[in-house]
Design a protein around this nucleic acid. Structure first.
Lengths: 199, 199
DNA sequence: CTCCAAAACTAGACGGCGTCTAATTATAGA
DNA sequence: TCTATAATTAGACGCCGTCTAGTTTTGGAG
């Protein structure tokens, strides 16, 4: 019962993670070559050498396999949140966290964009950045602003996501990921300065 | 071929609208008493004295019957958009349109809230205010800001919706609709002033 | 190494959504 | 009254997501 190898994971947990990644890799591979709509969960499961039931043990839906984040990513963004100094204005914290989070998406964004462009089903999904991140950030904001005005906190939270959406939506297909990040910074700045400012 | 009665609608169009409303009324009635999840499209169709296939002629999905707007509402919000004076700053226009649009939702919001609270499926739907409105407003913004900086326009558009979401999310169940509208105005004002302002 | 309880996996069936086709019925208007 | 066109329909289909009950794997204690 001493536990815990290399990282803080038991052998079982390591195997689970491996299966998770195998399923996701299989799914993204198939989606990439044949498109989201025309790949069934059965086919994904088969490609990952796993049963259909197991697929749904790991992912709540077919969409989730596109949007869910690697469990290890979660550690990263939690560190980002913990790293914000205590007295920092909420908006500055949100800006920094959003940028830090997005910087990590370089690998997966291109495929995700391609799939969303193809598939109506994915196109209008709230998910985008992973509901997990959204939830964690929401909790972090709630804790950080405990006692203070919840409306202002919620508003800033939503504005930050609106800024990210804007950067994402206006990202032309011929621009690099770095340019996307630049754009994101601009959006966050402008949102911070106020929608009414300029015009 | 002279056409057009009372309003600008042919007889056929009037009948279609009547069926549309019958289906929606039947659906909302059933949802209200038994909950969203436990009512099937078959049952809705039966209650509206219509076949399942016809249901899908009128609504693209089961969710749509909750979120789609009455076709006549569309006239209203288009008038709202057309009413904005030409030189007005975009943010002021968006604020006015959002408020005007929301003022009309007094009847449907309570049920919609109740359903969203019950149903996980509805809870995280992008729809909320009707995709139709979003699309129309997007087009209006695009036309209004033609030639100008599209990033700023998109950003303001998204910020306006974030403000509405915030008002909606922070609306306590014991508050009146009027209080919701007040809250909405505050959110729009704060978003206009900037997320970074105060805090 | 042996063994066992816990965890992971699996097959299979089910209800419901959304799509499609081909056929039937209703209706506006000449 | 007649007809072209639009609306409605039954029925079948594939797939998603859920569930149950049973089987296999596996890590670690003794």
């Amino acid at each position: 019962m001493i536990v815990a190898k290399g990282d803080g994971m038991s052998l079982r947990e390591q195997k689970k993670l491996a299966v998770w990644r195998a399923i996701r890799a299989a799914a993204l591979g198939l989606f990439d070559e044949r498109g989201y709509e025309s790949v069934s969960v059965e086919q994904i499961a088969a490609a990952a050498k796993v049963s259909r039931a197991t697929f749904f043990n790991y992912f709540a839906s077919k969409e989730a396999v596109v949007f869910d984040q690697d469990p290890e990513e979660r550690d990263h963004w939690r560190r980002l949140m913990d790293a914000r100094p205590a007295g920092e204005p909420l908006w500055d914290s949100l800006t920094a966290i959003m940028i830090g989070f997005n910087e990590r998406l370089a690998d997966r964004m291109p495929l995700q964009r391609r799939l969303k462009a193809q598939s109506p089903a994915l196109a209008q999904s709230t998910q985008d950045l992973g509901e997990q991140f959204r939830t964690d950030l929401r909790d972090w904001v709630a804790e950080r602003t405990d006692g203070a005005d919840p409306l202002t906190a919620t508003l800033q939270f939503n504005l930050a996501f609106a800024a990210v959406s804007t950067a994402y939506q206006t990202w032309p297909s011929d621009e690099s990921f770095d340019q996307y990040l630049q754009r994101l910074r601009r959006c966050l700045d402008q949102a911070g300065a106020g929608a009414g400012a300029k015009g």
